[in-house]
Design a protein around this nucleic acid. Structure first.
Lengths: 212, 212
DNA sequence: GTCTATACACCGATAGAC
DNA sequence: GTCTATCGGTGTATAGAC
């Protein structure tokens, strides 16, 4: 892609059209893949003409990055909300294993492999997300762990996240075998850590912030 | 993509050039993504000119599918070999969590969402692979399970596979936090099912080989 | 079997009118 | 703020010479 140095006229990023363009970007990406996210197709979706895209975004990469940032922020908000529920671990699991937009996640994951902007943004997002999860869930997991050296909060959270995500990917593709069994297993594990009527044992509110 | 009805001259699929074209297809996809797999770029990689690609493959879709089929067959062979080792579950884990070609897997996963040929092939491959894994590992997992209704062989195999794959994806992208801890957890689980010096309880040697 | 020449479509991006 | 016009580049695919 061409590196432009922006001598062009530009519109305000808070208008209605930029948002419509980001919506269109997501729609095209979900339905036709990242390769189909072109100025022409996105514009058509948003009901404006191709050249007007460049009034709001310097390059297609800028539009892509803006749409991606909007999305990661929404995921962060969603997870944060889940982690504030009565049973945060169960709530987190249900949120993560909801296959909403799994197709979009796959596209961005593949895209991150060869688009530097998206890759850096993905790394930063991933680290922020995991920090948030560990902050909220570590203490409870540690209390329920038979051996925190082996069954560590970090590992439990990652395993849950991974299983949730790949269940979503497979379901989107049309693979459903074994999903019920896998959910039964995960939910059994969750109940060991976070029983139905229980509350976490009293602990100082500030959990350890240490992390690589 | 255009649907062609093949009135063109075509070369033999067992020659050296088709294999070189499939190699080139994988290389381009790994390094630049599925969108970059064009006749021009693949040909350049393989050291031939653009138009010669069409002497061996009717369309770019045909080349893509051929490369994908070759790859899934190799994965099947690799997994089958791992499952024949002394500690099949551990061996399976090590093979699956080796991030070789995780980038390629991500590309095909995203591609499967909007390319019908790749999606159908992926579903068939996924089902075959899982059948193979369950056939080889179910009995041993069932023996070690505290409650096969909850900790079912199917679920254990899927959880292991999912964690292995996403560890590979993250490592490829540059996310490494928590991976060590996650491996410790998984390997602890594996030891519960398949202890170091142990053999599976006596069972008829011929496990069910039923497979599509 | 591999080459040159060529068709036609689509893409990113710019210039400038209204 | 959105339009028309337009450039240079790249894509799939075909025809036919060597």
């Amino acid at each position: 892609m061409r590196r432009t140095v922006a001598k062009r006229r530009m519109g305000p990023p808070d208008a209605a059209t930029p948002a419509a363009l980001m919506d269109a970007t997501e729609a095209v990406m979900r339905e036709e893949g990242y390769a189909a996210v072109t100025s022409r197709r996105v514009a058509e979706r948003a009901g404006i003409n191709q050249q007007t895209v460049y009034y709001y975004f310097q390059t297609m990469d800028d539009l892509l990055l803006a749409a991606y940032r909007r999305r990661t922020q929404r995921v962060l908000d969603r997870v944060q909300q889940a982690l504030s529920a009565a049973r945060p671990l169960h709530s987190f699991w249900h949120t993560s294993s909801d296959p909403m937009d799994a197709a979009l996640t796959m596209e961005y994951l593949a895209l991150a492999n060869h688009n530097d902007l998206i890759r850096l943004e993905t790394i930063e997002f991933g680290e922020r997300l995991r920090r948030l999860e560990v902050d909220k869930l570590a203490e409870r997991i540690r209390q329920a762990s038979p051996d925190p050296q082996v069954v560590s909060p970090f590992a439990v959270i990652m395993a849950i996240t991974y299983v949730a995500h790949l269940l979503g990917f497979e379901a989107t593709l049309g693979l459903r075998g074994g999903h019920r069994e896998t959910r039964v297993l995960v939910e059994w594990c969750l109940r060991q850590i976070e029983p139905a009527g229980a509350r976490a044992k009293t602990m100082p509110e500030r959990t350890s912030q240490i992390q690589g």
